[in-house]
Amino acid sequence: MTQVNMTVNGKAASGDVEGRTLLAQFLRDSQGLTGTHVGCDTSQCGACVVHVDGKAVKSCTMLALEADGAEVSTIEGQANADGSLNVIQQAFQDHHGLQCGFCTPGMVMSAAALLKDNPKPTETEVRDYLEGNICRCTGYHNIVKAILAASGQDVSAIAAE
Protein backbone atom coordinates (compact mmCIF):
# COMPACT_ATOMS: atom_id res chain seq x y z
CA MET A 1 0.00 0.00 0.00
CA THR A 2 1.12 3.52 -0.78
CA GLN A 3 -0.24 6.71 0.62
CA VAL A 4 -1.83 9.04 -1.89
CA ASN A 5 -2.62 12.67 -1.18
CA MET A 6 -4.77 14.96 -3.23
CA THR A 7 -7.25 17.77 -2.88
CA VAL A 8 -10.84 16.72 -3.47
CA ASN A 9 -13.47 19.42 -3.76
CA GLY A 10 -11.13 21.82 -2.02
CA LYS A 11 -10.32 19.60 0.93
CA ALA A 12 -7.23 17.52 1.58
CA ALA A 13 -7.85 13.84 0.97
CA SER A 14 -5.46 11.01 1.57
CA GLY A 15 -5.52 7.26 1.92
CA ASP A 16 -3.54 4.09 1.43
CA VAL A 17 -4.00 2.52 -1.96
CA GLU A 18 -2.61 -0.31 -4.04
CA GLY A 19 -0.92 0.34 -7.33
CA ARG A 20 -4.03 -0.94 -9.09
CA THR A 21 -6.49 1.22 -7.15
CA LEU A 22 -8.41 3.38 -9.59
CA LEU A 23 -9.20 7.00 -8.86
CA ALA A 24 -12.90 6.10 -8.95
CA GLN A 25 -12.34 3.43 -6.29
CA PHE A 26 -10.36 5.82 -4.13
CA LEU A 27 -13.13 8.41 -4.31
CA ARG A 28 -15.94 5.94 -3.67
CA ASP A 29 -14.39 3.52 -1.21
CA SER A 30 -11.76 5.52 0.62
CA GLN A 31 -13.40 8.95 0.57
CA GLY A 32 -17.06 7.86 0.62
CA LEU A 33 -17.78 10.05 -2.38
CA THR A 34 -20.22 7.66 -4.00
CA GLY A 35 -21.64 10.23 -6.39
CA THR A 36 -18.98 9.17 -8.88
CA HIS A 37 -20.36 6.06 -10.57
CA VAL A 38 -18.84 3.19 -12.48
CA GLY A 39 -20.97 2.02 -15.39
CA CYS A 40 -18.54 0.17 -17.61
CA ASP A 41 -15.07 -1.28 -17.75
CA THR A 42 -13.99 -0.13 -21.20
CA SER A 43 -13.78 3.60 -20.59
CA GLN A 44 -16.87 4.47 -22.61
CA CYS A 45 -19.88 5.27 -20.45
CA GLY A 46 -18.52 8.32 -18.64
CA ALA A 47 -20.53 7.91 -15.42
CA CYS A 48 -17.19 8.24 -13.62
CA VAL A 49 -16.10 11.57 -15.10
CA VAL A 50 -14.44 13.91 -12.60
CA HIS A 51 -12.10 16.83 -13.09
CA VAL A 52 -8.40 16.44 -12.36
CA ASP A 53 -6.53 19.73 -12.36
CA GLY A 54 -9.45 21.29 -14.15
CA LYS A 55 -9.74 18.72 -16.93
CA ALA A 56 -12.44 16.08 -17.36
CA VAL A 57 -11.11 12.56 -17.00
CA LYS A 58 -12.60 9.12 -16.58
CA SER A 59 -11.79 8.25 -13.01
CA CYS A 60 -12.23 4.54 -13.74
CA THR A 61 -9.41 4.79 -16.29
CA MET A 62 -6.90 6.60 -14.13
CA LEU A 63 -4.91 5.17 -11.26
CA ALA A 64 -5.40 6.86 -7.91
CA LEU A 65 -1.63 7.25 -7.62
CA GLU A 66 -1.60 9.23 -10.87
CA ALA A 67 -3.72 11.84 -9.11
CA ASP A 68 -1.22 12.28 -6.28
CA GLY A 69 -0.94 15.98 -5.63
CA ALA A 70 -3.78 16.87 -7.96
CA GLU A 71 -6.86 19.01 -7.50
CA VAL A 72 -9.88 16.77 -8.02
CA SER A 73 -13.47 17.93 -8.38
CA THR A 74 -16.44 15.58 -8.16
CA ILE A 75 -20.18 15.90 -8.38
CA GLU A 76 -20.34 16.36 -4.63
CA GLY A 77 -18.45 19.64 -4.97
CA GLN A 78 -20.55 21.20 -7.71
CA ALA A 79 -23.38 22.86 -5.83
CA ASN A 80 -23.18 26.53 -4.90
CA ALA A 81 -21.68 27.46 -1.55
CA ASP A 82 -25.14 27.77 -0.02
CA GLY A 83 -25.99 24.24 -1.13
CA SER A 84 -28.26 25.29 -3.96
CA LEU A 85 -27.85 23.70 -7.37
CA ASN A 86 -25.33 25.38 -9.63
CA VAL A 87 -26.33 26.65 -13.04
CA ILE A 88 -25.73 23.34 -14.80
CA GLN A 89 -27.38 21.24 -12.13
CA GLN A 90 -30.36 23.58 -12.06
CA ALA A 91 -30.69 23.40 -15.83
CA PHE A 92 -30.71 19.61 -15.65
CA GLN A 93 -33.58 19.74 -13.17
CA ASP A 94 -35.47 22.47 -15.04
CA HIS A 95 -35.29 20.60 -18.34
CA HIS A 96 -35.66 17.05 -17.03
CA GLY A 97 -32.16 16.15 -18.13
CA LEU A 98 -32.03 13.06 -15.95
CA GLN A 99 -34.18 10.08 -15.14
CA CYS A 100 -32.53 7.26 -13.21
CA GLY A 101 -29.66 9.56 -12.23
CA PHE A 102 -26.87 7.05 -12.69
CA CYS A 103 -25.11 8.72 -15.62
CA THR A 104 -25.95 12.16 -14.25
CA PRO A 105 -22.79 12.89 -12.25
CA GLY A 106 -20.65 12.22 -15.30
CA MET A 107 -22.97 14.23 -17.52
CA VAL A 108 -22.83 17.22 -15.21
CA MET A 109 -19.06 17.03 -14.92
CA SER A 110 -18.63 16.72 -18.69
CA ALA A 111 -21.05 19.59 -19.25
CA ALA A 112 -19.04 21.73 -16.85
CA ALA A 113 -15.84 20.92 -18.72
CA LEU A 114 -17.45 21.71 -22.05
CA LEU A 115 -18.83 25.07 -20.94
CA LYS A 116 -15.50 26.02 -19.45
CA ASP A 117 -13.83 25.53 -22.84
CA ASN A 118 -16.73 26.62 -24.98
CA PRO A 119 -19.18 28.87 -23.15
CA LYS A 120 -21.74 28.99 -25.98
CA PRO A 121 -21.64 25.63 -27.74
CA THR A 122 -23.89 24.77 -30.63
CA GLU A 123 -26.21 21.77 -30.45
CA THR A 124 -23.77 19.80 -32.59
CA GLU A 125 -20.85 20.74 -30.35
CA VAL A 126 -22.76 19.58 -27.28
CA ARG A 127 -23.69 16.27 -28.86
CA ASP A 128 -20.14 15.68 -30.10
CA TYR A 129 -18.68 16.53 -26.72
CA LEU A 130 -20.89 13.93 -25.06
CA GLU A 131 -19.45 11.06 -27.12
CA GLY A 132 -17.94 9.64 -23.96
CA ASN A 133 -21.05 9.92 -21.80
CA ILE A 134 -23.76 7.33 -22.34
CA CYS A 135 -27.30 7.83 -21.06
CA ARG A 136 -29.86 5.07 -21.47
CA CYS A 137 -32.91 6.93 -20.14
CA THR A 138 -33.33 10.33 -21.75
CA GLY A 139 -32.50 9.85 -25.41
CA TYR A 140 -30.21 12.85 -24.74
CA HIS A 141 -32.92 15.32 -25.82
CA ASN A 142 -33.26 16.98 -22.45
CA ILE A 143 -29.58 16.65 -21.58
CA VAL A 144 -28.56 18.58 -24.68
CA LYS A 145 -31.31 21.08 -24.03
CA ALA A 146 -30.23 21.52 -20.42
CA ILE A 147 -26.61 22.14 -21.38
CA LEU A 148 -27.63 24.69 -23.99
CA ALA A 149 -29.83 26.36 -21.39
CA ALA A 150 -27.02 26.32 -18.83
CA SER A 151 -24.87 28.17 -21.33
CA GLY A 152 -27.40 30.97 -21.29
CA GLN A 153 -28.84 30.22 -24.70
CA ASP A 154 -32.53 30.44 -25.41
CA VAL A 155 -33.94 26.91 -25.68
CA SER A 156 -37.59 27.88 -25.96
CA ALA A 157 -37.60 27.00 -29.65
CA ILE A 158 -36.44 23.46 -28.94
CA ALA A 159 -39.36 21.09 -28.73
CA ALA A 160 -40.67 21.65 -25.25
CA GLU A 161 -41.99 18.18 -24.87
Binding site: G46, K55, A56, K58, Y129, E131, G132
Partner: peptide, 9 residues
Amino acid sequence: IGDPAVRNR
Protein backbone atom coordinates in the same frame (compact mmCIF):
# COMPACT_ATOMS: atom_id res chain seq x y z
CA ILE B 1 -9.54 10.56 -31.02
CA GLY B 2 -11.87 8.95 -28.47
CA ASP B 3 -13.86 11.45 -26.45
CA PRO B 4 -12.87 14.61 -24.57
CA ALA B 5 -12.02 12.83 -21.32
CA VAL B 6 -9.92 10.28 -23.18
CA ARG B 7 -8.12 13.09 -25.03
CA ASN B 8 -7.25 14.70 -21.72
CA ARG B 9 -5.30 11.61 -20.66
